[in-house]
């Protein structure tokens, strides 16, 4: 019975989170984003809208902050050192930061969900179970990156008027009101890639799974892959930048190293590494 279960597996239940919880991680999907290459063109965001059935909510609701943009291009114009104050060439001071769910391994959104609608998968993903969500919105409040979005209305009723509904991606659902949602690292593509590999009787290899944003990025700034795969490009990039999972502070003494993860100091252990933009002084 469960009492026996608790007593026998006590140390597992108390320590397993150090290895990955109930399961061994099969994959650890991650990203590396080179901000040197990012031009802030927003193609990734558009691709995300198309791939993930994100509703377009219209100007008014967007202005009210009730839109959904799983991948948003954050634009900052406030770097005076780089000429942000320059009225004529303001874009010199501009910097871009494509932000999508960071799939933190110590995600702050997960433990606060009252109904366990968000959890960690064996793929190292921070998954959101729409059917289970009751919309308490605590997860979004506790996300330091503010990367979770809420369905304030039944957006699907207006977002895809005939015949636009024909372009919806059949691989994933359309969400109704009252549900939290966020970037899934294109979980439907991961599923397809894994299924294909299984059919062919092989391991998933680098390049089998590409997220919509990585596929669309014209400058190939976004690299997606499995961090547990030693040969994956993303793993090599992480290694080259000496960024590791499970380490809250990266060594920045070497000027050549540009890798960082957003708000690392909060110890959320995100799976997305950014490479800082290098500029002429």
């Amino acid at each position: 019975m469960s009492l026996k279960n608790i007593l026998e597996n006590w140390s597992h239940y108390r320590r397993a989170h150090e290895e990955g919880g109930h399961h061994e991680y099969e994959h650890m999907w991650g990203m590396a984003i080179d901000l040197n290459k990012c031009t802030g063109c927003n193609a990734c965001s558009v691709a995300c809208y198309a791939e993930n059935n994100l509703p377009t909510v219209g100007k008014d609701r967007m202005r009210k902050g009730q839109g959904l943009h799983w991948l948003r291009m954050e634009r900052y114009w406030d770097e005076p050192d780089l000429g942000g104050d320059d009225k004529e060439y303001q874009e010199r001071g501009g910097s871009f930061l494509p932000m999508m769910c960071q799939h933190c391994n110590a995600a702050t959104c997960e433990p606060v969900c009252p109904v366990a609608a968000t959890y960690h998968t064996p793929d190292g993903l921070n998954a959101q179970v729409y059917n289970r969500c009751i919309g308490s919105r605590y997860c979004s409040n506790n996300c330091p990156y503010r990367l979770r979005y809420f369905n304030f209305y039944s957006y699907y009723e207006e977002s895809w008027p005939e015949p636009l509904n024909m372009q919806l991606n059949p691989d994933l659902s359309v969400r109704d009101k009252g549900v939290m949602e966020k970037c899934t690292f294109c979980i439907q593509r991961i599923r397809t890639g894994k299924d294909a590999a299984q059919r062919e009787g092989r391991e998933v290899k680098d390049g089998d799974v590409v997220t919509a944003c990585a596929q669309t990025c014209p400058t190939e700034a976004i690299v997606f892959g499995d961090l547990l795969d030693k040969d994956a490009q993303v793993t090599k990039l992480w290694k080259a930048q000496e960024v590791e999972l499970g380490r809250a502070k990266q060594d920045k003494s070497d000027g050549e190293l540009r890798g960082y993860r957003v708000l690392e100091g909060l110890n959320t252990d995100p799976c997305v590494m950014y490479m800082d933009r290098v500029r002429e002084a």
Binding site: N5, R14, H17, H22, P111, T118, H120
Partner: peptide
Amino acid sequence: FLFLASAQANFLTQPQGGKAII
């Protein structure tokens, strides 16, 4: 305590957030 611990131990897809199961 036993109720909570056994519920947690039998609940396989629960959020982790880098935290223990019980």
